[in-house]
Structures are given as structure tokens and as C-alpha cells.
């Protein structure tokens, strides 16, 4: 209960931001907050609040797993690496060979999102393979 109190500002913000399927549970001294945000800005705002309550995430008493909702109709995504190119791999994993690259900021075609972590994509050059989903932002 103490943890729920510590992170109350965060869970309140999640509730008022309309996070869907919001679940807040405490188990073995760790608070687990799961849900789906409507957009990336909402998710980032929750992380900012988390960082304020627990500077540099040093306490290790919260696992904040808020994903950004992606509409099934979405067919394109933007590469949101910090600045570098994004590797396109033969299979879902960094142990897989690189079959191509997508430039930072490039818009590429989404082929399949059945794997949460690795999305199957196709570039304008026709290169097809898997990219790390955290570096892709679905285009409405």
C-alpha cells in the first residue's frame, strides 16, 4: 500500500490521461503498472512523472509498462532512432543478420506487427525484414 501511495501522482495521471486497461498491482514489494496509452506523448508524460518521484529510477520498486496503442489500420511507421540508421534484420532478434537499413526519420511500410518487440517492415527500396518496434512510431 505504501508503494501505491508513493506513486499516487503517477497512477492518478494515468487515470486522468485515459490509459486503457490500466492495471496497478503490488506484489513482493514492487508495483506493476500496465496499460495502453493513446499516443507517445501520454506515455512520455507518465515516464517524466515516474522520473520525478524516483529520480533516475534508482529504487527498483516500479515496473511501468505502458504501451502506445496502434490502430490495426495503420500501415506506415516513422523511424525514431536518436540519429542513426535503423537495422532491418532477417528475423526478430539482434542475433539475426542485417538485411538492410532504414534512415532516421524515414517512413517505412508496416507488413506485420504480430510480434510486439519486432515489427516486419518494408522500405521504399523493397527491402523487407524485422525492425526493433521501440524505434518505430506508427503513422496515423
Amino acid at each position: 500500500m505504501a508503494l501505491q501511495e508513493k506513486y499516487k501522482a503517477l497512477t492518478d495521471a494515468a487515470t486522468s490521461a485515459g490509459i486503457s486497461d490500466l492495471a496497478v498491482r503490488e506484489q513482493d514489494g514492487i508495483l506493476y503498472v500496465d496499460g495502453t496509452a493513446a499516443d507517445g506523448a501520454t506515455k512520455d508524460n507518465l515516464w517524466d512523472i515516474y522520473n520525478q518521484i524516483d529520480p533516475n529510477f534508482a529504487s527498483g520498486d516500479l515496473v511501468l509498462n505502458v504501451n502506445v496503442a496502434v490502430d490495426v489500420a495503420v500501415t506506415h511507421a516513422k523511424v525514431i532512432t536518436q540519429s542513426s540508421n535503423l537495422n532491418i534484420r532477417k528475423g526478430p532478434g539482434t542475433d539475426q543478420p542485417i538485411v538492410g537499413k532504414a534512415a532516421h526519420g524515414e517512413i517505412i511500410t508496416l507488413v506485420n506487427r504480430s510480434n510486439d518487440l519486432w515489427w516486419l517492415v518494408r522500405t521504399t527500396d523493397g527491402e523487407e525484414g524485422y525492425c526493433y518496434a521501440q524505434y518505430l512510431e506508427a503513422q496515423a
Partner: peptide, 22 residues
């Protein structure tokens, strides 16, 4: 660096760990 920390934590938190000891 501080700027990359949020990104790393976001990526790791999506993997369903029991705990992240930073």
C-alpha cells in the same frame, strides 16, 4: 547519460521483468 536512461528503461520495462535493478 541521463537522456538515454528513460529510453533504456522504457525498452526494458516492456519485456515483463520482475524488477529492474538500476
Amino acid at each position: 547519460n541521463k537522456a538515454s536512461l528513460i529510453t533504456l528503461m522504457q525498452h526494458l520495462s516492456a519485456l515483463k521483468p520482475k524488477k529492474i535493478e538500476n
